[in-house]
Nucleic acid binder design. Structure first.
Lengths: 184, 184
DNA sequence: AAACGTCTATAACACTTGTTATTTTAATAG
DNA sequence: CTATTAAAATAACAAGTGTTATAGACGTTT
């Protein structure tokens, strides 16, 4: 009845996501995706209404990718905030382009960090509740401070102003956590 | 002997800088600058070899702008790091596009933050020396932690995840400074 | 007033972008 | 084997980019 589909939606999305990951989100253009997928631009616009729709799909895939990354990252620290920071900073170092897209671009597409973390299984919000149950006086203040600190370190990896090993980062985060928690 | 110059280098640079400040660095294109300056693109390429040269000049002007901003910002905190943080975070809030260009873009043009701050008069490096003289045990560790924290808060203003008043920020920074300083 | 020299404007080139119209290809149904 | 039908390729359009060649405008000098 008709010709067989060779370029699937999945293939286009995977290609576009790989490009966003390796070359940066701004390099995900119609012609470049087509070239990397080994086809013309036409199949893209068959399965996606326009590029905005593909970009949105790439963003969502990146969000899921981070959540998996966070979920699977080894818990080496004592406090949940420390583990969150370790995963977040490692993600910034190892997935610079995705980190920029998700957490540092400031674009309109961007979810809030809270939302993005809350979506992950084993999410940090549960861990905050546990902190409160464990007797922390002001967990939301601690959360904010740790979050600012973690985000700062992660963003500095993008500009090359932060380049510490995992062991050093672990020590840094443990120390900061203690410093923030042991007050008033 | 010749026609009078109407579009000066200064006018072009001022126009381009204003655009970078108000509309973002990526909107500083040859035609848009020309339109805003009320001329054709030709005068731009008379005084600048190419757009890269103008962009570099805009970047340098932004760097000087921040240094003036930092120098003139009122010192309301007790510690030098707190004052640095207040100015830095206020700059991120009030000059989003310039902050992104200078401190959060990750581009190849970017100076290190240390370099950028060190260039300012009344620079923070002097203030660190004073901290050491004042008896702080490990000023470079304190500097790093405060710097990470300050940078984190500033970057969060870009994504809308940090929106505290000056008074709240002052309290936050004073608290963090105390937390970081009272450990070793 | 005429000529010269320099600044500006106009127009064009080559390239990239998203998007769409048209044509070709291929697989199935009769 | 032919006709149908959907997918893919080709080509084009309109808008944007940096850059450059050409033509025009203007002030100074002779």
């Amino acid at each position: 009845m008709a010709r067989k589909e060779t370029i699937t939606m999945q293939k286009i999305l995977d290609t576009a996501f790989a490009m966003a990951r390796e070359e940066g989100f701004s390099n995900v253009t119609a012609r470049r995706v087509a070239a990397k997928a080994g086809c013309s631009t036409q199949p893209i616009f068959r399965v996606y209404k326009n590029m905005d729709e593909l970009w949105e799909a790439v963003y969502q895939k990146a969000a899921g990718f981070f959540q998996d990354y966070y979920k699977l990252y080894p818990r080496r620290g004592k406090a949940p905030f420390v583990n969150l920071g370790m995963a977040y900073i490692a993600f910034a170092r190892e997935e610079k382009h995705l980190f920029e897209l998700l957490f540092a671009s400031g674009g309109p597409r961007e979810k809030s960090m809270y939302e993005l973390l809350n979506g992950a299984e084993g999410n940090v919000v549960h861990e905050i509740s546990r902190s409160r149950a464990a007797g922390c006086a002001d967990p939301s203040d601690l959360f904010m401070k740790m979050w600012i600190f973690i985000h700062g370190a992660a963003c500095m990896t993008l500009t090359g102003d932060y380049d510490l090993s995992d062991a050093q980062t672990l020590e840094l985060l443990e120390g900061s956590y203690q410093a923030f928690a042991n007050r008033h």
